[in-house]
Design a protein around this nucleic acid. Sequence first.
DNA 1: TCACACCACTTGCATTTCGCAAGCAGTTGC
DNA 2: GCAACTGCTTGCGAAATGCAAGTGGTGTGA
Lengths: 164, 164
Amino acid sequence: MEKPVRSGCPINLTLETLGDRWSLIVIRDIMFGNRRHYRDLLNNSEEGIASNILADRLKKLTEAGLLSAAPDPSHKQKTIYSLTEPAIELVPLLAQMGAWGRRHTPASRELSIRAQLLEEGGPPMWNAFMKELRALHLGARPPRRSVTRELNAAYEAELVAGKD
Amino acid sequence: MEKPVRSGCPINLTLETLGDRWSLIVIRDIMFGNRRHYRDLLNNSEEGIASNILADRLKKLTEAGLLSAAPDPSHKQKTIYSLTEPAIELVPLLAQMGAWGRRHTPASRELSIRAQLLEEGGPPMWNAFMKELRALHLGARPPRRSVTRELNAAYEAELVAGKD
DNA sequence: TCACACCACTTGCATTTCGCAAGCAGTTGC
DNA sequence: GCAACTGCTTGCGAAATGCAAGTGGTGTGA
């Protein structure tokens, strides 16, 4: 029943679960944007994902063990999506993607302060951020310093400054 | 004429050029397998890429400035594909992909010694490897130490040892 | 010189995935 | 009680993918 695996190469295996145009966008929005509900992800995605694609990705990512879905206690109809540990450990990968895109992509605009911070911060900042994600998504003990706050503050400041 | 960009987020921009099932596989084979010709990439790819898809990706990656194509002086009919500097700077990203796939993927078999070496070696090894790629693909001055040789030696040894 | 293998692709066609718009049953807020 | 909102689903045309076969040109051995 399982989809056959093309090869055992770990790069290929990563590509088989995440190698499409939307999976990592969804994870990015949950990770950096802290969007935890379907509607949030659907409407507040800058890229405009289609509803059926979003539903499909949420299902597949959940089946792949990268997300977990739970009912929201404050609202019977809402489902709350959380990152799992494997997804949290995508932080270094996303940091590298951001860094590469920022440097080598034609249209890379200035609106990438978070990628820049993550790039400059390097592994220590990634680790701090991952700790914080574990607190938010896995219920672990929260760290003292909030990297998310730093990232978002910088992002908001930039939005106000040079809106496009 | 250009395809519209979904958003300026650098992660998204990276995904728009590399976010499909084959682009990074092709780059991986050129990068780690040193396959420089169409036939090489077609036949020796473990994943079995289709010929039309390969042609399409080579074209797109060349247009995106990640590969360059040149006639092979030793054989008039052959085209030799080289990585460009932006593609070489994907080494950290691919290293992270390999590391993640090795750790979090169900079928990740032992046949991933290169990913492990690259993971353990960290940024210093990535940099050494990138230097060597610049020598191979851009005609830069070759470094003293060959990381490629190390990686490939380890890979061959493993192939002999635990063939699957 | 002539057949034959090899070169980088193309072409045609069936299957799968994507993307858009609309719809749906249940829930909440006023 | 009704409109707005919840997480999805459905239908359908368009695009991407995968497979097999073919094309025109070239190097190579007899």
